[in-house]
Write a protein that binds this DNA or RNA. Structure first.
Lengths: 136, 136
DNA sequence: TTATCAGTTTGTAATGATTACAAACTAAAA
DNA sequence: TTTTAGTTTGTAATCATTACAAACTGATAA
């Protein structure tokens, strides 16, 4: 049986080392937009020699190759996401969870930036999520 | 003649010290979304004793009181803006300038977050601006 | 005027995420 | 087996931000 994630990395010009496969798998399977810290902690059990520098390097490669994106929704923690189709993020200021939502970027800005070459789009909302609203 | 900025700060519950007035004036008159570093450098001539800590403290107060906003369009530099009506920002990856544009947030997301309490909205675009496009 | 007091400013030290760098390691090719 | 390019690792350096305590300011009360 062949390794799907390994092939996927190869297709995107990334040599599929054990660490890179594990990090990408974690990113794919974890929907809560993990930070470098949480990726490192989660994988340190399986890969005891893992270095935090490797996590930084690997995520940088993923972003350069376009298979992951950085989400700087908070200035003191960069989060990462393997879902790269443009979508928005809502951060709850109570429980700190980050929710995804769909965005129609074209309708939001019209033709204001027609002469600009847009390479990346981010939309961040902040507030109180439904679940926290119901509690209070 | 009375000091408009001082009165404005007072109206918003901020004691109008010399430093606070100067920092707010600079923020108002500077349209390029300055960083703490650039605010500090710009004012250090007029206020030789100015401390960078004061700039940090003052901006935090402005944000808490709702008369300025932080723009984390880049993870290694927080920028500040005295125009607090919600609008989007485009960052040119060539010249690093940050442009403002108007955003229709409602149209962009529909009713997906109807049970969420939205307190702040940010839209960040990244790419090459018109002026840099024309050069190449 | 002087004393008091709360709030503001300042400089230094601490924090903590990220980056730089060089050595150790790996795996494939020669 | 040797070589080589690329990868991983750990430590040290960097740099923005925060913590903290001392010095300062300006208003109020005695």
């Amino acid at each position: 049986m062949m390794n799907n994630v390994g092939d996927f990395l190869k297709t995107n010009g990334i040599k599929p080392s054990y660490q890179r496969i594990k990090i990408y798998e974690y990113l794919m399977n974890t929907k809560d937009h993990p930070t470098v810290e949480s990726i490192y902690s989660a994988l340190n059990g399986q890969i005891p020699t893992l270095s935090k520098t490797t996590v930084y390097n690997t995520l940088k490669i993923f972003i350069d190759k376009g298979i992951a994106m950085a989400i700087t929704i908070d200035d003191n923690e960069v989060r990462f996401d393997a879902f790269i189709d443009t979508h928005g993020h809502f951060k709850c200021q109570e429980c700190h969870r980050v929710y995804d939502f769909h965005v129609n970027f074209e309708g939001a800005i019209g033709d204001q930036l027609d002469d600009f070459q847009i390479l990346e789009q981010q939309m961040f909302f902040y507030g109180i999520c439904r679940s926290c609203n119901e509690k209070s």
